[in-house]
Each structure stands twice: as C-alpha cells, then as structure tokens.
Design a protein around this nucleic acid. Structure first.
Lengths: 262, 262
DNA sequence: CTTTATGAATTGTCTGATGAATGAGGGGAA
DNA sequence: TTCCCCTCATTCATCAGACAATTCATAAAG
C-alpha cells in the first residue's frame, strides 16, 4: 500500500450546505443518487472500504451516512451481502429529507401529481379541522402570513416563505400532530408551485384571494367553507404547477360535499 | 482510572429483536425513552463518552444510534452543546420506526385518536382511488386477505396479518406512492384496534362484513361506494378501539358525501 | 461598555484492528 | 447422483484510541 499523502487535497469541496456535517453531506449526496435513480433498487453499493476510500473519507463517516439512509428506508446493510438499495415501497417518501432530495432536481411528473393528490385529500380536511380548533395565536400567525404574501408577492423570497408559513400554520391549527408532520411535504409542493408559476406565467394568477377565502372561513369557524375554499386553492395550485406541462395531467378526484362537523 | 473488567457481563441482554444490530438496538431503546417522555424535548443527553460507557458499548455504536435518531428528527447534535431531544414538532411521527416506538407501550389516548382521525381522512379516499385504479393482482391479494380474515379470525396471528394485508393492498392499489407509504401508520392503528377489541370485548363485532363491502365496491369499480364503505369501516374500528376507554372520545368529522370521479 | 482573544467541553473525523454473520463452494454420506 | 453439513472467504459490525473542528463562556484588552 502506498503511503497516502495526507490531506493533499482530499476535501469534498462541495459546500457543506448549512451546518451539515461530513456524514450528513455524504448521506445527502448518496440519497440524491438513489432517489434520482442513479442507483437502482436491488443494486449493491461498493463495500465500505472501497466506497469510503473513493470519497476520501473515513469508513466511520461513510458508515454514519449509511445509517442515516437506512433510517429513511433507502438502503439495507447485511454482512457478506453488502449494502443494497431498497425497493421503492420501503422508502420513507414523506420523510422531509427524502422528499427534499427528490425535489432537488426537476421532479418526476407522476410524483408531483401524487403529491398534489395527497394534498387534495388531506389539506381541505385539515382546513376544516383548523376552523374548529385554531387558537387565536394560530389565527394571528395565518393573518400575518397572508399579509406577507400580499405585501411581498411570490416573486420575492419573503413572499414565498409567507406562503409556506400560511400552510404550516394552518396544518398546525388542525391540532393533529400527524397532519402537522406533513407540513414538510406540503411545503415542497408549495415551493414547486411557485417555481413553475414564476417560470412559465409570472403573476398570471394572484394567489392571495384564494388564501384569503380559506382564512376567512377558518376565522369564522366555518369548517365547510374552509374545506371548500382549501379544495379550490389546491386545485388552482395544481393547475398553476402543471399548466406548463401540457394538458395530460389533471387532478382526478374532486372535493367532497358537505361536512359533518363533530 | 480503574481497569475495566472486560465483558464481565456487559451485554445488553435485551434480545436484539429480529436482526437489529447493536446500533439499532440502542436507537430503538433511546427512541422509546424519548417518545415515551422519559427524555423530554430540550433535555441534553449525556455526552457520547459517558453515555457509551454507561451502556458498555463503543462510542462508534452509540454515535451510529444517534445518527439514526437524528435522521428521524428526534435529536439534534452540536459540538460543545451536546445532543438534545428535539421539540415534538420536529419528530417524524409518520416514520415507521417512530410510530412503532410510540405504540410500543399503551399508546397515548390523544395520539391514538389523532391517528384514527388521519385514517378517517385519507383511507376512504384511498379506497375510492383503488376502485378506479386497482389491478387484478391487487384485487386478488385483497380477496385472499379477506378470505384469511374470515378463516382465521382476529383471535389468531394469521388473521391479524390478513387484516393488515387487506389494508396494505388497498393502499397500494391507490397507485399513489405517498399514500402507500402511509401503510405502516395504518397498520399500527389496525393492530391496536385488534388488541383493544380482543381485550375488552372479544369477537363483539365481526369485522369481515365491513371489509367485504369495501372490497365489493372496489371490485365493482365504484369509488363512491368504496369511499362510504371505508369511512364506515374506520368509524367502526375506532369505536371498537375506544369502547373500553370511556365515551369521551369520538371521531369528530364524518365522511363526506358524493365523490366527483375523474 | 464593547470587542476581541483565550480556553475548555463536546461532537466530528480518522486510523487500524478484531469480531460476527452469512452466502458459496467443497467434501462426505445416503 | 443427490443431499446435507462443514469450512472458508467476504462484508458488515464493533471496538479502542487519537486528533481535529466547532462553539460557548469567560477573561482580557481597547
């Protein structure tokens, strides 16, 4: 074995975004390779020594990265067999990191559709629950977010954050922790809505009125109204997102009628 | 420093369930301590040397466990500050492991309620989607599961597995990968339904007819029927689960009326 | 009083070695 | 021949110890 030149230029120059540690960076890079299909399910990764060697990192760091990926259902490690990419059914698609890795690049049409389908299912219900359960503080937070959207518009980062915060506050107001934990997924979809919208038809449609209707219904404690308004909002967001992708996509299932409040 | 008696009896005698490795066992134990409230959000864990020492494991194993927990949003590590339990909003509640850890012991009433509320929201919709999209193979799998339920009953492990498989196959038939990835959550709820049911009122209600109606509607390609049948099924399951817990719990939001098929 | 330098505590990373699990192939028995 | 069991090589799993990097608290300097 040749004596290794220590840190001759070993560093992954790829910026460790935020405060991601080395293992976090590796997990992210590998995770992206997996969800993007570069590494396919069933495929066996290089063994730990070879892989860590090729990345110029210690086996420790590489292994910690694998633990992270395994925790998210992306890979499975076994002695003798090695570490292989899991079947997609085992992936934790709703995990915030996995989802962000998926949407790191232009997302798959089908997956984007599925995500909006999910939103269409539970976000109107969440709005209805929020109408019944929201606290004053949560209502105030939604109001502030709405104001921020109107003030900054979605052309600016601040406005986009306000948009996401509106949805986040709404989900939190549903007072259901499982629904709240879906916030990340919604945010991902919301973000892409904005991106496509800005790209293909900037300011073609003002999103504030749709949000305002949802807010008003929630403020008034009207579950049915909140449900309907949110269903409409998601429909519009989906249209805005896919308008550039041709007419082949449409949200199949519509909103359901009345709500039987508790 | 006293010489350590090596492996005097250091072994976590706690059975490493299945093929969990050491780090997996530690992650599970620690995870349970966290979700059960023994370690509260904001609390700082022992530093790695102390903790690993107390568990009689290497720092490596302990750190890999921490990476797993961090990947699920349960803890956050920073130099100097240490590793602290994250706020509950950051927990990945829908992560299969986190959920299984939560349900490791008698689950929290409120959380169980929230989980059923989530089921009530999306499982009827999933049934409707399944009615439109299911493949023959998926239909066959559901039929087999239904048969298994009828044959073995929920008093036997085989029957319970069939129950879970029915729901799993249904969610898969929705052809929405995000919905499918919620299978674990549903299974957890389904499992607890059976447990409470058997404990307090064995065989009080035959679950097969409810499932049969769902299946028939899906087989017939009837989204509205599937939706209604599933909504009823979840309601009944919730009643069976909470019957023993007094009348204070009830699913607030009912099923919604017609379905606008695509 | 504010800013800057110093230091200590904790996680982060590296290295090298040994243990354990497991799949494959060979050897022996029926 | 066919099947079972044993051995062995490969890979992950675990361990031990060292050093680097980060960060907060505190002291020093202006």
């Amino acid at each position: 074995m040749v004596a290794k030149v220590k840190t001759a230029k070993p560093l992954n120059v790829r910026a460790r975004r935020k405060s991601l540690r080395l293992h976090g960076t590796i997990a992210r890079d590998l995770g992206i390779l997996i969800v993007s299909g570069r590494y396919k399910p069933g495929e066996v990764l290089n063994n730990e020594v070879a892989a860590s060697d090729r990345l110029h990192v210690s086996r420790t760091a590489y292994r910690e990265a694998l633990r992270i990926l395994a925790a998210k259902g992306l890979v499975e490690s076994r002695p003798r067999t090695g570490t292989r990419v899991s079947d997609r059914e085992k992936w934790h698609l709703l995990d915030p990191d996995v989802l962000s890795w998926i949407f790191e690049f232009e997302p798959d049409d089908e997956l984007l559709y599925s995500l909006f389908e999910l939103r269409k299912i539970f976000e109107p219900e969440a709005a209805a629950l929020a109408a019944e359960r929201r606290s004053d503080a949560q209502l105030k937070r939604m109001a502030a977010a709405l104001e921020g959207m109107a003030k900054h518009t979605l052309a600016v980062e601040e406005g986009r954050i306000a948009d996401q915060d509106f949805h986040a506050a709404l989900l939190e107001a549903s007072a259901n922790p499982f629904i709240t934990s879906l916030t990340t997924s919604v945010s991902a979809a919301v973000a892409w809505t904005t991106i496509f919208k800005q790209r293909n038809s900037p300011l073609r449609r003002d999103p504030v009125p749709d949000h305002q209707r949802v807010f008003d219904a929630i403020a008034a404690g009207d579950p049915e109204g909140a449900h309907a308004a949110m269903a409409h909002l998601v429909d519009m967001a989906f249209l805005d997102t896919t308008r550039s992708k041709g007419p082949k996509l449409k949200l199949a299932r519509g909103s359901r009628g009345e709500t039987v409040a508790g």
